[in-house]
């Protein structure tokens, strides 16, 4: 057992807020002060603290080489941490590795498969490796869910890249894990299959499986995740509910489509920091939606007073991608 079972989240402290939702449920994974320095001196992780909540979909974002895969590999037992402790549902990943690992299914980033095995055999092999009794009905269901059923007797080397990726997901699901790690699961998978894969992930999530994913497609994280962690240079720079993160860090823009072109912003509107766009046909106002006074009423009044008329307006909110890029470029 790990001493890190308490829901008083170190991550919360690191992210600068008090535990709220997490306080009710004990985290299913607790990462405490984990760092990793590879031979040769490269420090892939710098004292990472993170709690994963039971049943959530957690998206880990970060540029290449940020430490995402290292963190996942440490939790799953493939890489040894230099310092720190990790507990999975209270079981220390070193002292009680059987309990910890039985709960975890891992889909690694690299397409590594036993090329000469059939799909059925390789998926059944994984189930056996995780100590579960043979259950053809479960394997059949997993393969059908992933549209692999008609390929079950084919050797893996005959499959396409997208199918191999799904075989790896099938392997990870073969032993009915409570936690699923998906490291870049949709890389190289076409749009239709990607949708199918996310449908499977959603169903798993609904059945109570905790899902931790990394992806380069930020829109996927935006669509799928409950919470988002951003890792950069081996440090977890932010962990936040996706909605809150987008509110907190997302900026909103109000665009006004003018009836007549403006050559320049009138001096009366100088205080609003407006931008002219579309050759002077649009005025763009950037504001923080979290503030009590967004300044919109004032702006509209000032516009009327200046005799500027507009025919349409719309607001946009920055996407997770923009938030991500700004976070990674200027870490706190």
């Amino acid at each position: 057992m790990s001493p890190n079972d308490s829901p008083a989240t170190p991550e919360a402290a690191a992210a600068g807020h008090t535990p709220d939702v997490a306080a009710g449920t004990a985290p299913i994974i607790t990462v405490s002060g984990v760092s990793k320095t590879y031979k040769g001196g490269f420090q892939a992780l710098k004292s990472v603290n993170l709690d994963i909540r039971k049943g959530e979909i957690f998206a880990l974002l970060g540029p290449n080489g940020a430490g995402k895969t290292t963190l996942i590999s440490i939790i799953c037992g493939i890489v040894t941490a230099t310092t720190g402790r990790i507990a999975v549902a209270g079981a220390d990943i070193n002292d009680d590795y059987r309990t910890a690992r039985e709960m975890i299914g891992l889909v690694p980033q690299e397409l590594t498969t036993d090329a000469f095995e059939t799909v059925w055999n390789t998926v059944s092999f994984t189930r056996g490796l995780f100590g579960k009794p043979a259950n053809p009905a479960h394997i059949e269901k997993v393969l059908k869910d992933l549209s692999l059923w008609d390929k079950k007797d084919d050797r893996i080397l005959t499959l396409s890249g997208g199918m191999k990726r799904r075989v790896m997901i099938a392997k990870a699901l073969s032993h009915e894990p409570r936690i699923l790690f998906l490291d870049e699961p949709t890389a190289g998978v076409d749009v239709e299959l990607r949708q199918g894969m996310w449908a499977v992930v959603r169903r798993l999530s609904q059945s109570g499986v905790t899902i931790i994913l990394t992806t380069h497609y930020i829109e996927e994280a935006e669509e799928m995740a409950d919470r988002v962690g951003v890792i950069s240079g081996g440090e977890l720079i932010v962990v936040e509910e996706k909605a809150k993160l987008m509110c907190k860090l997302g900026r909103k823009q109000l665009t006004l489509h003018l009836q007549e072109r403006l050559a320049e912003i009138p001096p009366a509107l100088a205080d609003y920091g407006l931008d002219l766009a579309a050759d002077g046909c649009d005025i763009v106002y950037t504001y923080d939606s979290q503030q009590d006074h967004t300044g919109i009423t004032g702006l509209l009044t000032a516009l009327r007073d200046s005799g500027i008329k507009f025919r349409d307006l719309h607001t946009t909110q920055s996407s997770l991608e923009e938030i991500f890029v700004s976070l990674v470029r200027s870490p706190k």
């Binding site: 799953c76 037992g77 493939i78 690694p108 036993d114 090329a115 994984t126 490796l129």
Partner: peptide
């Protein structure tokens, strides 16, 4: 060589 060793290392064995 192929990388499938990940599975052995991450399994409860």
């Amino acid at each position: 060589f192929t990388g499938t060793i990940y599975e052995l290392l991450s399994a409860p064995v």
